[in-house]
Design a protein around this nucleic acid. Structure first.
Length: 375
RNA sequence: GGCGGCGUAGCCAAGAGGUUAAGGCAGGGGUCUGCAAAACCCCGAUACGGCGGUUCGAAUCCGCCCGCCGCCUCCA
């Protein structure tokens, strides 16, 4: 399979997964392979300023020329060199890293002022960030495992080229997903793919699981934790079911204080766990208010809005065809007639067998409701 | 070994010097219901990995120890 085709395949998979998780699309999705001119421009700039040097068709960044190198990851140069290391002899200094690598015969390559080659593994991020976001950006995300050397190198390349400091105002490094006490990674093969997770749990459940802890902390994937998220999602959905017959004499539920607490939590370094707690508190108030006859429609609207900020859809999970839903409603109303005639045995049988088929009936003062059971 | 981070009820997890230590899941009791389900009410850590220390006061600060995770040239 040609490289471009392979890249497209995984790009498509990525977007399918992100869409399923209700992740909004960014404005631009640049590709490293299409940004070679900017890469070359930056390398030339770094060469001109003395931050880089050419060696045998490759170009390396001279880390000792950049005094701030190591600041982000709290390292200093001398401590970073392992004793038993076997470094490329083409470098001036062991920790210098490649900006441009000469290609070996048979490898894919691009033409450059230094001959045929490919970008180093860090430069394309600087190139795309500087091109699309500007010389100084507010927030740069990434996993904790990228702090060194990747982000450290990005800073060195970008600030060296632009002479603008800082390249990034705030670094947001998220904790890594673990499975059985180990970092999930492709290289070790211990992973649960997004697709796998979505086969068993709703995107809302996955979001409640992930956002239930601080983004900086690692989190461990477990069926139990995801199941808890699913149940929580159902609880929030339940609070959104339409309520009728509001009592005019009961004050309508004011969700304002909840909205304010939610915003405060999010303003506090994205305290999503706290924000979710507010969602559950509001859901409880809605349920309680509705029970007492308060008009909760506006509060429900706010609950849905706040949940939406966290990317929660609060939509029912399964989407069977509408035809089936009509049959279910028919069965439910027939059962209601049986209940009116106190035909409990038959009524219970319908409820039980529907339950076996994945449909739950709920008898309420407003009539019988039904919904799809969770798996 | 170095650097960074984490260890809070059965499980997940917020809180970062001083109200009763959020919230969810699971569990127990109750209300409602023909019975259920859902919802609502009540209950659950004298306790925050361990040991010292600072302080009038610590889960929150300091030190040491234990356990776990990430990174420490050539995957980004």
């Amino acid at each position: 399979m040609p490289p471009a085709e392979l890249a497209n395949k995984y790009t498509d998979q990525y977007f399918a997964n992100m869409d399923a998780l209700n992740v909004e699309r960014a404005d631009v999705y640049p590709r490293a392979t299409e940004e070679i001119p900017k890469v070359i421009e930056i390398i030339q700039g770094l060469l001109a300023k003395g931050y880089a040097y050419e060696s045998d068709g490759s170009v390396y960044f001279r880390v000792r020329s950049f005094p701030r190198y190591g600041k982000l990851s709290h390292r200093n140069l001398s401590e970073m060199i392992p004793k038993d290391a076997n470094y490329e002899e083409k470098k001036e200094y062991p920790l210098d890293f490649a900006l441009w690598k000469a290609s070996k015969p048979g490898e894919p390559f691009w033409e450059s002022p230094w001959g045929k080659g490919r970008p180093g593994w860090h430069i394309e991020c600087s190139a795309m960030a500087l091109k699309y976001l500007g010389d100084s950006i507010d927030i740069h995300g990434g996993g904790q495992d990228l702090v060194f050397p990747h982000h450290e190198n990005e800073i060195a390349q970008s600030e060296g080229f632009t002479q603008e400091t800082p390249f990034v105002r705030y670094w947001l490094h998220n904790g890594l997903m673990q499975l059985d006490k180990q970092k999930m990674s492709k290289s070790t093969g211990n992973l649960v793919s997004v697709k796998d997770a979505l086969a068993h749990f709703s995107s809302d459940a996955i979001r409640l699981f992930v956002l239930g802890s601080n983004y900086r902390n690692p989190l461990t994937y477990s069926e139990q934790a995801l199941e808890a998220g699913e149940r929580g999602a159902e609880r929030l959905r339940g609070a959104l079911t339409p309520r009728a017959n509001a009592d005019e004499r009961v004050a309508l539920l004011d969700a304002g204080p909840f909205e304010q607490k939610f915003v405060e939590a999010m303003d506090d370094d994205f305290n999503t766990a706290q924000a979710i707690a507010v969602l559950f508190e509001l859901a409880k108030e809605i349920n309680r208010g509705a029970e007492q006859g308060a008009n909760v429609a506006e509060a429900q609207h706010i609950l849905l809005k706040l949940a939406g900020i966290l990317g929660l859809t609060l939509k029912e999970r399964a989407q069977p065809t509408p035809d089936i839903e009509a049959f279910i409603s028919l069965l439910a109303s027939t059962r209601d007639n049986l209940r009116q005639n106190e035909q409990w045995q038959l009524a219970d049988r319908i409820r039980r067998e529907l339950a076996d088929l994945g449909v739950t009936l709920e008898d309420t003062p407003q009539g019988t409701r039904w919904k799809y059971s969770r798996r």
